Computed example of a mutant assay.
Amino acid sequence: MAHIIVVGNEKGGAGKSTVSMHVATALSRMGHRVGCLDLDLRQKTLGRYITNRQTFLNAEGLELPTPAYLDLPELDQSTLAEGENIYDARLTAGVAALDADNDFVLIDCPGSHTRLSQVAHSLADTLITPLNDSFIDFDLLAHVDTEGTNITGPSVYSEMVWAARQLRAKAGLTPIDWIVVRNRMGAQNMVNKKKMEAAIGKLAKRIGFRTATGFNERVIFRELFPRGLTLLDLRDIGVKGMNISNVAARNELRELIKALDLPNVKVSF
């Protein structure tokens, strides 16, 4: 069976689709077969990213390792069993369609609470939660006191992950390996950064997740989207000199893939 990676939280703008595309493409470039689903049925940023990539490669006559992408299958309501939820059935059908031919199935969730996202979390072998390095985003995981030092209780997203873990336990499945990825870790506000580090460290022990460093804010991510490219593709399209920012971003991706510690993955870029 394919190892299922779910990228999710319930807040937009945290970098879920950027993380999804770079993780999926990195695994593809290392020789793994990767299939992707995008559960944001309206915006489909990951789906657009992969479609843009295929269009660009075809136009340029290039061949680069590319994750497979599948739109969530449409199903006839009349084919469902009594009481079966249409979204559950569509997600199950999508995962089943990708499972046999891939080593990994990566599911990119929307930045809001939906039935699809809820079910996807219960399927996760690895859960990646990108989080901007601010207490606004931290509030997604837990509530803190006015000083930002003491955790007063879990928030709605943590409770959803807890419910997903309970479902997996009842089904006899392996526990979810949950990694909170800290994006946009600027050095300009050291007081906030230290408070965030302390708060995330406390919460990690309390509710059981690992932490990893993700990507800093870089213009190149927005520039690459129309062509569906990632940092790992630059040399292949003729970019001879990598600037300092690009090299740093590539190193961030390498460290993220190492931190995920996915099965049978040896980082080779």
Rank of each mutant, 00 (worst) to 15 (best):
Ile220Gln: 06
Val181Tyr: 05
Pro226Trp: 13
Arg227Tyr: 04
Thr174Phe: 07
Ala212Met: 09
Phe221Asp: 02
Ile176Leu: 12
Leu173Asn: 14
Thr213Leu: 12
Glu197Asp: 15
Met190Gly: 00
Ala212Pro: 08
Gly214Asp: 09
Glu223Arg: 11
Ile200Asn: 00
Arg222Ala: 09
Arg222Val: 00
Lys194Met: 11
Phe221Ser: 02
Thr174Lys: 15
Phe209Ser: 09
Phe221Pro: 01
Phe215Pro: 01
Val219Trp: 02
Val181Asp: 04
Arg182Met: 11
Phe221Ala: 02
Leu224Ser: 02
Met185Ile: 12
Pro226Asn: 13
Asn192Glu: 14
Gly208Thr: 10
Arg206Tyr: 10
Leu203Arg: 04
Ala199Asn: 04
Arg206Gly: 04
Thr213Gln: 12
Glu217Cys: 00
Asn189Phe: 06
Lys202Gly: 01
Val219Ser: 08
Phe209Gly: 06
Ile220Trp: 05
Ala187Lys: 14
Asn189Glu: 11
Ile200Arg: 01
Leu224Ile: 03
Phe225Cys: 02
Lys202Asn: 10
Trp178Tyr: 12
Glu197Pro: 00
Ala204Val: 10
Val181Ala: 05
Asn216Val: 03
Leu173Ser: 13
Glu217Leu: 08
Glu217Asp: 15
Asn216Ala: 12
Met190Ala: 14
Arg206Leu: 15
Pro226Thr: 12
Thr174Ser: 14
Val180Ser: 08
Ala198Lys: 10
Ala187Phe: 11
Phe209Ile: 09
Ala212Arg: 07
Arg210Glu: 12
Leu203Phe: 15
Glu197His: 11
Leu224Asp: 01
Lys195Phe: 01
Asn189Lys: 07
Lys193Phe: 03
Ala187Leu: 12
Arg222Pro: 00
Ile200Ser: 00
Ala187His: 11
Thr211Val: 13
Phe209Thr: 07
Phe209Glu: 07
Met196Asn: 06
Gly186Ser: 14
Ala198Glu: 07
Ala212Gln: 07
Arg210Pro: 02
Arg218Tyr: 13
Val180Asp: 06
Gly214Ile: 04
Asp177Lys: 15
Arg184Gln: 13
Gln188Leu: 09
Glu217Met: 04
Asn216His: 13
Met190Thr: 13
Met190Asn: 07
Met185His: 05
Leu224Tyr: 00
Trp178Ser: 08
Ala187Pro: 02
Ala199Gly: 06
Phe221Met: 04
Leu224Lys: 01
Met196Cys: 06
Arg227His: 10
Gly208Gln: 09
Ala212Phe: 05
Ile220Asn: 04
Ile200Asp: 00
Arg182Phe: 04
Arg184Asp: 03
Pro226Asp: 12
Lys195Glu: 00
Arg206Ile: 10
Ile179Cys: 12
Pro226Gln: 13
Ala204Trp: 07
Thr211Gln: 14
Lys202Gln: 15
Phe215Leu: 05
Thr211His: 03
Met190Leu: 14
Gly201Asp: 09
Val180Thr: 10
Asn183Tyr: 02
Ile207Cys: 08
Ile179His: 10
Ala199Cys: 10
Gly208Asp: 09
Ile220Ala: 05
Met190Arg: 14
Thr211Lys: 06
Arg218Phe: 11
Arg182Glu: 10
Phe221Thr: 01
Glu197Val: 02
Gly201Cys: 06
Lys205Asn: 15
Thr211Glu: 14
Ala199Thr: 13
Gly201Glu: 07
Lys205Gly: 15
Ile207Ala: 08
Arg222Asp: 02
Val181Gly: 03
Asn189Gly: 03
